[in-house]
Amino acid sequence: MNSAILITYDKEDAINEAKGLCDAAGYQVVHTITQKFLKRPKYGISGGILERLEELSERLRPDVIVFDEILKPSQNYNLASILHREILDRETLILEIFERRASSAESKLQVKLAQLRYEMARAKEKVRLSSMGEQPGFMGIGKFEVDVYYNDIKHRMQTIRSKLEKAGKQRELHRKGRKRMGFNTISLAGYTSAGKTTLFNKMTGETRDENKELFTTLSTTTRRITIKQEPFLISDTVGFISKLPAYMIDAFKSTLEELAHTDVVIVVVDISDSLFDLKKKFASCMRTLSELGVEGNKLAFALNKMDLSKSNEIMNKIEILNLSGKNNWVLVSAKTGENIDKLKEMAANIIENYSLTNPKNM
């Protein structure tokens, strides 16, 4: 495993998530520097912290330095010039994880598209900086002129987009086929690591890979299940994360748009999270679902990991999430299987109610 020095925010949830991202990308964090503010113009951090980082970098000799914020190319260049190490910002780190996790042809294309979008946004600045001298892991673009470099990225993006478009059309045909055969569809969504894949396995009898790492699932898997003697198709989708840039969501559009077309979306929530984490992750999920055009009356909430929580704490959290008094949530444990049948029934009821109130859409 490669080593990394991590620079992140001075908050427990930020530290845990950043360490989780490093771990998922294959980096062992050998030292963590925490700061209240990571957006200073020249280096992202203050000169005093940079000196400390320089000394640490010399002593610990990490493979990379991970900066848990989005860096401008000039900031990345300035840091690499002084530290003589490869600098990975939050976006590059997530892209590395996506690259490691992509297994299907479509998810590999989606990751490539996201990487090119990242490159394109920085192309002009990178070419300007490359003439000032190369830095570790920073350039690798030779003596490209701006336009040549920019157009090359553009052309590669167009090629990938047309391939993804074909995959999207294929997906649409599958959707229409499922509808004709009378299948109702359920999708699992939620913050990465909420336990979606474990829940998927419990609901379907599958044995998909499940672990605590972030982004275990990048490509959608669909299986058939039976609820109330009726056939349903259930899908697992890519996990959401805070501060996930719009272009990354856009790159995974053909996978994520399934959520807008599905009959019910089960949002998996880790109810054992601290109050702060719970609110942040819930808001992040709801924002992403709204951006994808998922209708509110198609949502069901699986409040997972009930086995790790006290009942009075759970009720308080349900109140805070504004779910009390509503009938579209159920407490479950994907680990023990508790209330899984209740969850399936609730999903079937939501579909039934939706079809009664929106007959044209079904």
Rank of each mutant, 00 (worst) to 15 (best):
P73W: 04
R52S: 11
L343V: 04
L278G: 03
L60E: 15
L113Y: 10
T8E: 06
T220S: 08
D273S: 14
I249M: 07
L244T: 05
I49H: 10
S57E: 00
L56C: 09
L299D: 11
K202C: 14
S103I: 09
V30I: 12
K112C: 13
I97K: 00
I49V: 13
E134T: 15
M362Q: 14
G26I: 07
E295C: 00
E17Q: 01
R100S: 05
R161I: 06
A260P: 05
F240V: 02
L56R: 05
A283M: 10
L6Q: 01
L343P: 05
L95S: 01
I49F: 08
S309R: 02
I141C: 12
L303G: 05
R287I: 13
L233R: 04
A283G: 06
S254M: 07
T185K: 08
R59G: 08
Y77P: 05
L303A: 04
E58K: 15
A347L: 01
M181W: 11
I94A: 01
T159H: 11
E338H: 10
Q229G: 04
N16S: 06
F138E: 06
R101C: 03
A334I: 02
E12R: 09
L214S: 05
E210I: 07
R40N: 09
D63G: 00
K154E: 13
E55R: 15
D209V: 04
A167E: 02
K344A: 12
I49E: 10
L278P: 00
D10A: 06
N297D: 10
R208W: 12
V264I: 09
R61N: 15
K163H: 13
I314V: 10
E54T: 10
N211R: 02
